[in-house]
């Protein structure tokens, strides 16, 4: 379990992480989603005690990372693919880290096999591809058989087979009751791997919600229509219970209905249609909307001026933001 309380990190004039509070629960895979530069890596480094928070604090399995007697048994981290000296072999790198915790060569060879590095274990890391470096990073994370795993962009540079392997591994580790916290800038990746997602943008938490909720929100279909009698059509559709939003280019965006009903409503009112297109918004759209909001909100107030003290509170506030915006007419 990871608990962050009002965590902030300032680098010079830039506030990389801004008053972030969240709880990562054991037993599920939690995705940490945000565009590049949103503060994901900084947050993860603060969890690991590598960067010192400007304010706030964070605990892992109940205490700050550095307080644990066996840190590698508490948290295994893949923080960046090549936190490795290129002159050492993969096995030597693992041995050097394992030795600090009295972990024997048997376990070193075990994680080498588990991550599929057996063939290259005695080769220098300098010649590794990005994917192999990533596998070595995951081997390091697994070394101490940790209760919590922190994986920063684990599928970066992996081939499709490797991506699938990481997904299964993450789910499997979570199913064993471990805490799995993995970051990605790809909504689709998180949707496939994670059960829960924390979305971060510009250093602030935008959503803290089950992935299913985000998927449901995103899978809402809309219909785009163009009509010379747009005003009358909008009225007719609203009477029919649909949500109508005019778009910039003069079309109408209709939610809560479908193409057939929109067409029938128009026909019943004798209204001319120039376009009638069903639009399926994707997960990426939902994510883009979410992170775009962050930019808009940033100058103003983001609902939670006061930090939430409980975990579920931001979960309630977060995901409603984009829906509230889309549903203005409701």
């Amino acid at each position: 379990m990871i608990e962050a309380h009002a965590l902030s990190k300032r680098y010079g004039p830039k506030l990389a992480v801004d008053d972030v509070s969240f709880v990562v629960q054991p037993g599920v895979v939690t995705g940490f989603l945000g565009p590049n530069g949103a503060g994901k890596s900084t947050t993860m480094r603060m969890i690991m005690g590598l960067d010192r928070p400007t304010t706030g604090h964070v605990t892992v399995n109940g205490s700050p990372y550095a307080r644990h007697e066996r840190p590698l048994a508490e948290v295994g981290a893949l923080l960046e693919a090549k936190a490795v000296h290129p002159g050492r072999t993969a096995r030597q790198h693992l041995q050097a880290l394992a030795t600090t915790h009295g972990i024997g060569d048997r376990r070193v060879d075990e994680v080498i096999e588990l991550t599929g590095l057996t063939a290259v274990a005695r080769k220098r890391v300098g010649g590794f591809s990005l994917g192999m470096g990533q596998r070595l990073g995951i081997a390091v994370a697994l070394l101490g058989d940790p209760r919590t795993l922190i994986l920063d962009e684990p599928v970066n540079g992996l081939d499709p087979e490797g991506v699938l392997w990481v997904r299964n591994l993450a789910k499997h580790l979570a199913a064993q009751g471990r805490t799995v916290f993995l970051s990605s800038h790809l909504m689709s990746e998180v949707a496939l791997t994670a059960d829960h997602v924390i979305v971060i943008g510009r250093g602030r938490i935008l959503a803290d919600t089950p992935v299913q909720d985000l998927v449901d929100g995103a899978s809402r279909r809309t219909v785009r229509v163009r009509s010379p009698q747009a005003t009358e059509l909008a009225e007719a559709l609203r009477r029919d219970g649909a949500e109508v939003t005019p778009t910039d280019d003069g079309a109408l965006e209709i939610a809560g209905s479908d193409a057939a009903r929109v067409g029938e409503t128009a026909a019943a009112g004798g209204l001319v249609l120039h376009e009638l297109t069903p639009v399926a918004s994707t997960l990426e759209d939902a994510y883009m909307a979410l992170t775009a909001d962050a930019v808009e909100y940033h100058a103003g107030d983001v609902a939670d001026a006061a930090p939430h003290e409980t975990g579920p509170a931001p979960a309630a506030a977060g995901p409603q933001d984009p829906t509230a915006q889309q549903g203005d007419a409701r």
């Binding site: 066996r70 590698l72 915790h101 009295g102 101490g144 058989d145 699938l164 591994l169 789910k171 499997h172």
Partner: peptide
């Protein structure tokens, strides 16, 4: 385990104090 993914066996790894 799903597919070829083998789990790290939790109980057999000896991790000592730093």
């Amino acid at each position: 385990g799903t597919g070829t993914t083998t789990a790290p066996a939790p109980s057999t790894v000896t991790v000592r104090r730093v």
